[in-house]
Each structure stands twice: as structure tokens, then as C-alpha cells.
């Protein structure tokens, strides 16, 4: 176990180093001079040159990469060209929005997927199963840029239930905050609802073949308590793993949802950074999401290994 964890961690560090290098290299190759992006198109060559010196852009790539990496080790991600603020403070301002969005999405997705998955497994090929498969296959086929206009059309333009865009901090007004986040959460949860349902369904189908389900039925338990008290826990293993892994995926997925609803989260930050060629900001945000993503996946891998009941049984 210890060796496994160590190997995973080394792997993780190597991957992250490669990620940082690839990100820096890629941005270095970006056409367009950031100096013009900052100073405007009419900038004089002298001004551009002095800005290059100021930003260190006149030094070779590997020197800048080395600097960036050593600053990164100290938690310094550099300063945004556009906002003239430190990248880390911009990230920490945007993070709560994205975090709230993703946590609520995961909760909603689990709340919907657990009953759907369990009841679909109860009768494979039955009405509930087929219906669920149909609905969830539409969910997975509708990316946010498709589903959001549809949701907006229904909830905002037709029924006037929720505001279309914008953001209110939870601390300022919890009700307004929730009002603004409902639609983004629904849009973002379509994919996890479908994926979680499918995972839980196939595991539950397998569990329901087990002898202990038969002995639970012989005890006279109701179908509901057999499904939820006996079958759910032994079947929720892949679901939990998937939920852990999807946290990383959802960070990526949040980009478009945030953009569409004008939520000031990580996704909006990266899109605006790309649009204005704000290289330190792009680099910092990409690196940040990659770190979250990789660390999360590694943690789930290790946890999976630790929680695997077969391994636990072998130990006993």
C-alpha cells in the first residue's frame, strides 16, 4: 500500500511538471505580442521594447520557465497583464463561485441519480429502465451551449422563474445567490445525472443477483428497504469513484456554463484571459485547474484502492 501510494505520488508530480512545461511552451508559441495587447495597437516600438524588458519577455523561454516554476513553488503565479493583480488573488476570488456551482451540481446529481439508478436496476428492460435510459441519453447528448438556451427559454423567458444571468454573493443575499445558481446547476448536472445513473444501475443489477438479496426477501422486507438498505450500499462503489473523478471533469465543464450565465468563476476568468492574451493569467488558471484535476484523480485512485472491499476482505 505504501509503495503504491508513493508510486502514484511520483507519477503525479512528473505529470504536473510536464503539464506546466507544456502550458508554458504552448503560450510562448501564441502568436501576437502581449505588449500590443496591453499597450494597444498604436504602441511605439520603444514602448513595446521597454515593456518587454519590464515583463522579462526579452529573455529566452527556458529562463522564463525556470523563473515561473520557482515562483510557483513559492505560491506566486505572477501578475495579470489585464487586471494588474496577482494571478493567485484573481483565482481565489473566482474559486468560491466555481466551487459552489460544482458542489451543488454534485449534490443535485446524486439526489436524482440514486433513486433513478436503483429503480432502473430493479427491472432490467422495464418501463422505468427504458424511460430512464431514454431521458439520460438526451441529457448526455445536450452540451451546455444547447441545454442552457433551452433552459433559459423555459425558466427565464416563458415562466419568469429565474434571472437569466449575473451573480450575487452568498454572503450578500443567500436567497438571491441561490436564485442565480439554480439554472447553472441544472445545466451542469445533466451529464453527471446520466453518468451516475448508469454506473449505479449496472452495479445494482449485479448486486440484485446476490444471495443476500434473496435472504432479505425471505425476511419479508419491503422492496424499497431491500433496494435502499441492502442493495444500495454494496452497489455504490463505482458511483462514489465516479463522483470523485467527475469533480475534475466538472471544473472543465463549468467553463461554458459560467460564460453563459456570466458567473464570475474560474471558467469566465480563463475565457476572458484567453480573449485578451493575458498570458500569466491563462498560464496560472490552466495550471491551477490541472493541479486540482490531477490531485483529485490521484486521490480517488488511492482511495479506490483503499476502499476496495475485496482488498479489505483479504486483509481480514
Amino acid at each position: 500500500m505504501g509503495r503504491y501510494v508513493a508510486r502514484k505520488l511520483i507519477h503525479m508530480v512528473v505529470v504536473l511538471l510536464l503539464v506546466s512545461f507544456a502550458t508554458s511552451l504552448m503560450l510562448d508559441l501564441t502568436p501576437g505580442d502581449p505588449a500590443y495587447a496591453i499597450l494597444g495597437d498604436q504602441a511605439t516600438p520603444a514602448a513595446v521594447k521597454s515593456l518587454h524588458q519590464e515583463l522579462g519577455l526579452d529573455r529566452p523561454f527556458y529562463v522564463r520557465y525556470g523563473d515561473w516554476l520557482s515562483n510557483l513553488a513559492r505560491g506566486d503565479l505572477g501578475t495579470s497583464y489585464e487586471y494588474k493583480q496577482s494571478v493567485s488573488s484573481l483565482i481565489s476570488q473566482a474559486l468560491p463561485v466555481t466551487a459552489e456551482l460544482i458542489v451543488l451540481t454534485l449534490l443535485l446529481a446524486l439526489a436524482i441519480a440514486v433513486p433513478l439508478g436503483v429503480y432502473s436496476a430493479r427491472r432490467v428492460g422495464g418501463i422505468v429502465d427504458r424511460g430512464t435510459t431514454f431521458v439520460t441519453s438526451i441529457f448526455v447528448s445536450a452540451p451546455p451551449f444547447i441545454s442552457v438556451p433551452f433552459l433559459v427559454f423555459l425558466f427565464v423567458l416563458t415562466w419568469h422563474i429565474f434571472p437569466a444571468t449575473g451573480w450575487v454573493k452568498f454572503g450578500d443575499s443567500p436567497m438571491d445567490n441561490l436564485q442565480h445558481i439554480v439554472l447553472p446547476v441544472i445545466a451542469l448536472s445533466l451529464w453527471p445525472v446520466a453518468a451516475f445513473t448508469a454506473a449505479l444501475r449496472s452495479d445494482t443489477v449485479a448486486t440484485l443477483q446476490e444471495d443476500f438479496i434473496l435472504s432479505a426477501r425471505a425476511k419479508g422486507l419491503s422492496t424499497r428497504s431491500i433496494l435502499f438498505r441492502h442493495a444500495l450500499r454494496p452497489s455504490s462503489f463505482s458511483l462514489m469513484t465516479l463522483a470523485g473523478l467527475s469533480l475534475g471533469t466538472l471544473i472543465g465543464s463549468a467553463v461554458i456554463v459560467e460564460y453563459l450565465f456570466a458567473l464570475p468563476g474560474i471558467g469566465s476568468l480563463i475565457i476572458s484571459a484567453i480573449n485578451v492574451h493575458d498570458i500569466p493569467l491563462v498560464q496560472g488558471v490552466v495550471m491551477f485547474t490541472a493541479v486540482v484535476y490531477v490531485v483529485m484523480n490521484t486521490a480517488v485512485d488511492i482511495l479506490y484502492r483503499y476502499l476496495d472491499p475485496r482488498l479489505r476482505m483479504q486483509k481480514a
Partner: peptide, 21 residues
């Protein structure tokens, strides 16, 4: 009736108990 008045024991005790309960 099941479990209260008529009960059943199965062949394989290894699999007829819920492993996570």
C-alpha cells in the same frame, strides 16, 4: 408472513449475508 411465520435458510452462508452490514 415471510420472515415472521415462515423463514428460510440458504445453501451458502458465505453469500447469503449482506457483506456491508
Amino acid at each position: 408472513i415471510w420472515g415472521k411465520e415462515i423463514a428460510m435458510i440458504f445453501q451458502n452462508p458465505m453469500t447469503s449475508l449482506n457483506p456491508v452490514m
